[in-house]
Nucleic acid binder design. Structure first.
Lengths: 202, 202
DNA sequence: GAGAGAATAGAACGATCGTGCTTTTTTGTC
DNA sequence: GACAAAAAAGCACGATCGTTCTATTCTCTC
């Protein structure tokens, strides 16, 4: 894939844009700044997208692809049930810890940035976050159906709590630069899952 | 207090600045935009601060004062121990839910914005977040010392988990506009505290 | 209520923003 | 290797940015 020069350049631009967006913000990231970071001219870069908003949308989509590859896809290969719930959360923490994006989780950054900025960019970010949450919720539901997790609690609330630990690890590390939070978040997630586990039928 | 005209104007500017910063961001909030929102001239407003950075620092301090008044001070009047831990968390969720700032928690917004933007503004934000976390941690410690909470767990980790629920409620509401998260966060916090409670000595 | 000083407004600056237009360079196909 | 098409660069635009300087208006004190 990425056969033509244009496609390769576009891909490289979006890699840089997504990385810089987590450090400097997606909105304040100027065309000139991005051109400098990629070694291109302003107008040469601009021609790939036609407007700043299109660039932003493409950047959001590109970041979503990266997260799918780094978090969702690996967890999908774990067996349904508790194992997959754990894999999703662990992968999410990993993705923060490995600094796939230098400024932490792309959607944590940008969702705060666009919370009160209506428009297609915000819509795209919300949609991605929504699908992440519902995927996690669905995994919890499957674990309940498999008889591994207590079915009396709402899967939505369990997903909320597990996600909260992973998101907080990301936020705390970015602010305090203390790597302990990753293991603390993993432990919190593990213990929360264990507290919901149903005694195995032998 | 606020005896002189200048002090009153400055206070009003900072109220508006803190509110707008949670919606539009602290960095992209321009002097002209803030002047328009307060009905002043650019230069008239600017003269109160001398530089944009000073305005930003004053805005952060002002927001901190508001949070102390809205969250910390009320919780301080709760008795030491579990009651105060609960009061702190409940107040924090409340402060998000009541939309003391229209864009949600001021420090949640700005910490993401300044995570990778070194300088005095970032330092001030980090300091405020750090003191919030250590205040919560200290409250947990007191509850352990009073024999109300299991002393075997690190107060730091308990504070991390409780804060995670409150912060996530804020983030989810701002993104999804679903008011259920506030009660879900309160329930998660309550149940986590209960799970750590030590059987009372009669 | 007059007069000093604080508070606010007006106008202008150089820099940077997103974007359009034109030209040059590069790429991929016969 | 020529040639059409694609990609990149150069340049200029109007708007907005933070900031400065000067002029005007308002506030508070005696």
């Amino acid at each position: 894939m990425l056969r033509t020069k244009g496609e390769r350049t576009r891909h490289a631009i979006l890699d840089t844009a997504a990385a810089l967006a987590t450090q400097e913000g997606l909105e304040p990231l100027s065309i000139a700044r991005l051109a400098e970071a990629t070694g291109m001219s302003k107008s040469g870069l601009f021609a790939h997208f036609g407007s700043k908003e299109e660039l932003q949308l493409a950047t959001v989509d590109h970041a979503a692809d990266i997260i799918v590859a780094e978090v969702i896809a690996p967890a999908r290969s774990a067996p349904r049930g508790v194992a997959r719930v754990w894999a999703l959360c662990d992968r999410m923490v990993d993705y923060s810890e490995r600094q796939v994006f230098p400024g932490g989780c792309f959607f944590a950054c940008t969702s705060f940035e666009y919370n009160n900025r209506p428009g297609p960019v915000r819509d795209r970010i919300e949609e991605m976050m929504r699908s992440w949450m519902s995927y996690l919720e669905h995994a919890v539901e499957q674990a309940q159906e498999a008889g591994e997790l207590d079915p009396r609690l709402e899967p939505r609330e369990i997903a909320f709590q597990l996600d909260a630990f992973a998101q907080s690890a990301n936020a705390h590390f970015q602010l305090f630069r203390d790597e302990r939070v990753f293991e603390e978040a993993r432990r919190a997630i593990r213990e929360r899952i264990e507290s919901l586990r149903v005694a195995r039928a032998a």
